[in-house]
């Protein structure tokens, strides 16, 4: 066969072989990935979608640092049992500001895409310090150090700035006030609290997430867990808000 004869010559030339490999291996990615950036319907437009506050972002980074995504997915599939167990299925737009996405691949623990508001802050704090104190048969690791480690807020402005470069719509004010906003969100009776609501919207929750006066990593993690599924209300009232552009 001519094809095998052609190959007979190809395998005598290492550079041609490398070029052949690159060509053969490029097609799949080009066809499947490139259009996701250009087809508008890929990500819905949600009018009330907001960005993470600096405190929530810090909590998200701790969630990443501890590898929580290895056991908890944040992607409710379009299946009846998942919607009944976890809530409305996840929309692409809900993770549009997530660098990286944390959809996960394994549910050793339950999906937490819509965890926000399901449990009290106190429950989360107790659960993170010792999961078996509130769920006796849980196999989740304990994270007691979150309650004592002070939260680093100084460089949060740089974090927001990096994310803005990547396309997340943080404003100059948000970047300039990031450390103050992080503190104020967890200490709601402080002077900066009004600024957080002003910049991130009325729906932003301000409270002492860890229940203690000190700003710790626990504040950030609980703030993040409580905002999961709450950045937009569109999934809960789909028809009214889901307008395609």
């Amino acid at each position: 066969m001519a094809l095998f004869k052609a190959h007979y010559n190809l395998e005598k030339n290492s550079i041609a072989l490398v070029i052949g490999i690159i060509l053969a291996a490029s097609v799949g990615g080009i066809v499947e990935i490139a259009p996701l950036f250009t087809i508008d319907e890929t990500v819905e437009t949600l009018p009330d979608m907001r960005v993470y506050t600096p405190l929530e972002l810090a909590g998200r980074n701790i969630y990443i640092r501890e590898g929580c995504y290895a056991c908890h997915s944040q992607m409710i599939r379009t299946l009846r049992d998942e919607v009944e167990r976890y809530g409305p299925y996840s929309l692409a737009a809900e993770s549009q500001y997530d660098h990286p996405m944390l959809w996960g691949s394994k549910r050793t623990g339950p999906d937490i895409a819509r965890l926000g508001g399901k449990y009290s802050d106190d429950w989360h704090v107790a659960h993170l310090i010792n999961p078996r104190a509130v769920v006796p048969t849980s196999i989740m690791p304990a994270y007691p150090w979150l309650a004592t480690a002070p939260l680093a807020v100084d460089d949060l402005g740089a974090h927001l700035a990096a994310l803005r470069t990547l396309g997340v719509p943080y404003t100059d004010e948000m970047i300039a006030n990031a450390p103050r906003d992080a503190e104020a969100q967890a200490i709601p009776d402080s002077a900066g609290a009004a600024g957080v609501t002003e910049r991130y919207g009325e729906a932003t929750t301000l409270r002492r997430f860890s229940g203690t006066p000190r700003l710790t990593e626990m504040d950030a993690v609980v703030a993040f867990l409580q905002v999961l599924g709450q950045l937009t209300q569109a999934p809960y009232a789909p028809d009214a808000m889901l307008e395609q552009p």
Binding site: E32, F37, D98, H99, M101, L163
Partner: peptide, 19 residues
């Protein structure tokens, strides 16, 4: 510092990640 943010987000990041 070590911390970085991946260039892609959400659904595109998911697809690149699993590609």
């Amino acid at each position: 510092g070590a911390k970085s943010y991946p260039a892609f987000s959400g659904v595109q990041d998911a697809m690149v990640q699993w590609w």
